[in-house]
């Protein structure tokens, strides 16, 4: 060592202390930050907009009030979403079905006149999808309704398990993440098969 190789003062005790605290604090902070970040990212992947409080459900071409139909009129979900007890998709009702009532009911309502316009013009209504699973997931409503139907007495009680209380929603929004973990947890809890080919093939 030639003299002058290292020309630094020995730090004072207080400096060492501060540096130590800063170092350890920084490390802990980084770890906590990472974990928090991971949670936020996971949550964001799950329900993107809920994290920021923006999830109020999409705007639909016709502001269909589930509140009126389900809550006030007490209609069963399967009255409109007929396919739910037979097949994969719950299906949206054909415009013709709406018109069975709305031919006579609801004169003067702006939204209902929109509906009638659709019916007379013969164009399909392009509803905005609220719940969507990716292509590689084969989600079938029917067995779910069947399973929970036995438990909760018919399809009516089961829909809200995943879709929330739609009857109280002005705009329908997604309430569960419907990510794979969500599915798997529920399958485990209900003794449903967790083999990957249950949904992926």
């Amino acid at each position: 060592m030639i003299p002058g190789d290292f020309q630094i003062r020995k730090p004072s005790r207080i400096q060492v202390l501060i540096l130590g605290i800063l170092g350890i604090g920084g490390l802990v902070g980084a770890v906590v930050g990472l974990v928090l970040g991971a949670f936020v990212i996971t949550a964001w992947l799950g329900l993107p907009l809920d994290v920021f409080g923006l999830n109020e459900g999409p705007e639909q071409p016709i502001a269909f009030p589930h509140t009126t139909h389900v809550k006030s009129l007490g209609m069963d979900c399967t009255f409109c979403h007929r396919n739910v007890t037979v097949g994969a998709a719950a299906s949206v009702p054909a415009v013709g079905l709406c018109m069975t009532c709305h031919k006579t009911i609801g004169d003067g309502n702006e939204e209902i006149s929109k509906l009638r316009d659709y019916h007379s013009s013969g164009l399909p209504i392009n509803w905005v999808r609220v719940h969507r699973v990716p292509d590689h997931v084969n989600f079938i409503h029917e067995p779910h309704i069947r399973h929970f139907g036995e438990k909760y007495g018919g399809p009516a009680g089961t829909c809200q398990l995943c879709h929330g209380d739609v009857g109280r929603m002005v705009k329908v929004k997604q309430v569960r993440s419907l990510k794979m973990g969500d599915c798997v947890d529920c399958h485990k809890a209900n003794d449903a098969p967790t083999d990957c080919t249950t949904c992926h093939y």
Partner: peptide
Amino acid sequence: GGSATAVAAAACGVPEKELLVQAPL
């Protein structure tokens, strides 16, 4: 909210047609 979802989904490469459900006549 709807448009925001659409934008977010479009960014993730979901084709637009998958964000629509057509109610036939």
